[in-house]
Structure formats: C-alpha cells, structure tokens
Simulated scan of single mutants.
Amino acid sequence: MLQAAESAAAPARDRGSKEQVSPSAGTRQPEEADAALVQKARSGDLESFGELVRRHERTVQGIVTRMIPSPDDAEDVVQEVFVSAWQGLQRFRGDARFSTWLHTIAVNATLKRIRQMRRHGQVSLDDPESGTAERLAADTAGQPFEQAVSAEEKAAVRRALQNLSDNHRMTVVLYYFEEHPCEEIARMMGCSVGTVWSRLHYACKKLKQELRDIRGGDGAAGARVERPDA
C-alpha cells in the first residue's frame, strides 16, 4: 500500500502528465472537494489520494523549491510530503483546511531538510551560487519585493533574503509568494500571529535598508511596510 501511495505522490512531470482536476471535483468549492477526497482516501482509495496530489502539488512544490536550491533534494522533499500526508491521513481531524494541514507538513519537511543539508556540510542555502535567493527575487508575486526593478536592486533583494533566518524566509515565502493569511502561517509554523507579523516586518525592514543604500536614502518610498491582515 505504501509503495502505491509513493507512486501516487510522484511528481506530475514524472508521471508524464500535467496537473489535473477531475470534473466532479471542479464543480465544488475547493475545501468541499478536498474533504470528499480525503474521506475516500482515508478508506484506502488511492485514486482519490492521487487527485489530492494533483490538486495541491504545485503549491507544495512552490514552498519547497523556493527554500531548497537542489532540484533533486527539492523533488525528494515534495514526494516525502505527500507520503507523509498519506501515512497521516487518519490523524487529520479536519479542524483546519486540508491545504493548511498539507502545507504544514511541507513547511516542517523543508526546514528539516535544510537543517540536514547544513549539518552534512552541503552547499549553504545562503550561498549566492545556490540559486535560492535568485529564484525568490525573480518571483515578484507580491509586495514589497516587486519594487526592485534594476539589476542592482534585484541584487539587493537577494542580499536581504540571504540574510534572513530560515524561519523568516519561510514566512516571506508563505505570505508574499504563496499568499497565505497570517493566521494560517501561524498555524503552519507553530507560532503566534504576532510572531508572523514581526517576521514580515523585519524582512521588509531589511529590504528597505538594502534599497535605501542604492537609492540614496529614498528607497523606503517604494516599499511600504503595512501590517498584513490576519
């Protein structure tokens, strides 16, 4: 059964297909469709679990690949996330959305792999050659990171991101790039909403400092720091 679950959790590109959503699932609200699929998957229905993988694979990949530079390591973590989800379905109580529960697994698995990589002396995630900050800086899905327009300013974004701790960087990924509300991020990371806000404020402050140095003191004008909605 576990081997079959691993097959269902294999990345879509390895299965030779693109992300799909079944017609029946598409007629419902995402949370309702997830709940129905989870119920079937908990009864051992691998097809339903495979549908859950297809529905959420892209966002899980986004969380993992923006934090882990190695494509092979990132792919391993993505599969590990879905295998862990399969093994833990019986413990999913439904008091949070399935996506929140799944992304919590992704956050924990990603941070665990980062610690292992550092402990084993693999390439530092803060090393500019790793490409992690490059990908984060290139993905301008949200404010204030899209304020950097020149090559020099994008380099400043990379420096700001490189200087963040893993928890701060993950918070930035979840809020600005995956667009999770602060309340969900707090649940995923096991901290208070106030801590999430504090991390976002600190990250924006670091970015403003880098841009201010480049823009001759007025860099803060383009990168406002607003308290995010919880």
Score class of each variant (00 low, 15 high):
Met1Phe: 00
Gln3Gly: 01
Glu6His: 06
Ser7Ala: 14
Ala9Glu: 03
Ala10Trp: 04
Ala10Met: 12
Arg13Gly: 00
Asp14Ala: 12
Ser17Val: 14
Glu19Ile: 12
Arg28Asp: 11
Gln29Ile: 09
Pro30Lys: 08
Glu31Lys: 07
Ala33Glu: 07
Asp34Pro: 02
Ala35Phe: 04
Val38Glu: 07
Gln39Lys: 12
Gln39Trp: 11
Arg42Asp: 05
Ser43Ile: 00
Asp45Gln: 05
Ser48Ile: 02
Ser48Glu: 10
Glu51Tyr: 15
Glu51Gln: 12
His56Asp: 09
Thr59Arg: 14
Val60Met: 12
Val60Ile: 14
Ile63Cys: 00
Val64Arg: 01
Val64Thr: 06
Arg66Pro: 01
Arg66Asp: 05
Met67Gly: 06
Pro69Glu: 13
Pro69Lys: 12
Pro71Asn: 09
Asp72Ala: 14
Val77Cys: 05
Val77Gly: 03
Val78Gly: 10
Val78Phe: 02
Gln79Gly: 11
Val83His: 02
Val83Ile: 07
Ser84Cys: 04
Trp86His: 05
Gln87Ala: 05
Gly88Asn: 15
Arg91Glu: 12
Asp95Met: 11
Asp95Lys: 12
Phe98Glu: 04
Leu102Gln: 10
His103Tyr: 05
Ile105Gln: 00
Ala106Met: 03
Val107Glu: 14
Asn108Glu: 13
Lys112Tyr: 04
Gln116Ala: 08
Gly121Met: 09
Ser124Ala: 15
Pro128Gly: 07
Pro128Cys: 03
Glu129Ile: 03
Ser130Gln: 07
Ser130Asn: 08
Gly131Ile: 06
Ala133Asn: 05
Ala133Ile: 03
Glu134Thr: 13
Arg135Asp: 08
Leu136Asn: 09
Ala137Ser: 15
Asp139Gly: 08
Pro144Trp: 03
Phe145Tyr: 12
Gln147Cys: 08
Ala148Val: 13
Ala151Gly: 10
Glu152Phe: 14
Glu153Pro: 00
Val157Tyr: 14
Arg159Gly: 13
Ala160His: 03
Leu164Ile: 04
Leu164Ala: 02
Ser165His: 03
Asp166Trp: 13
Arg169Glu: 04
Met170Leu: 14
Thr171Leu: 07
Val172Lys: 07
Tyr175Cys: 09
Tyr175Gln: 11
Phe177Gly: 01
Pro181His: 14
Cys182Ala: 15
Ile185Gln: 07
Ser192Leu: 09
Gly194Thr: 11
Gly194Arg: 08
Val196Phe: 01
Trp197Ser: 11
Trp197Ala: 11
Ser198Glu: 06
Leu200Ile: 08
Ala203Ser: 14
Cys204Ser: 08
Lys206Trp: 06
Leu207His: 03
Gln209Asn: 09
Glu210Asp: 12
Arg212Ala: 10
Ile214Met: 06
Arg215Ala: 13
Arg215Gly: 04
Arg215Tyr: 02
Gly216Tyr: 09
Gly219Pro: 01
Ala221Leu: 13
Ala223Ser: 10
Arg224Glu: 11
Val225Phe: 10
Glu226Arg: 11
Arg227Asn: 10
Arg227Trp: 01
Arg227Pro: 15
Ala230Gln: 05
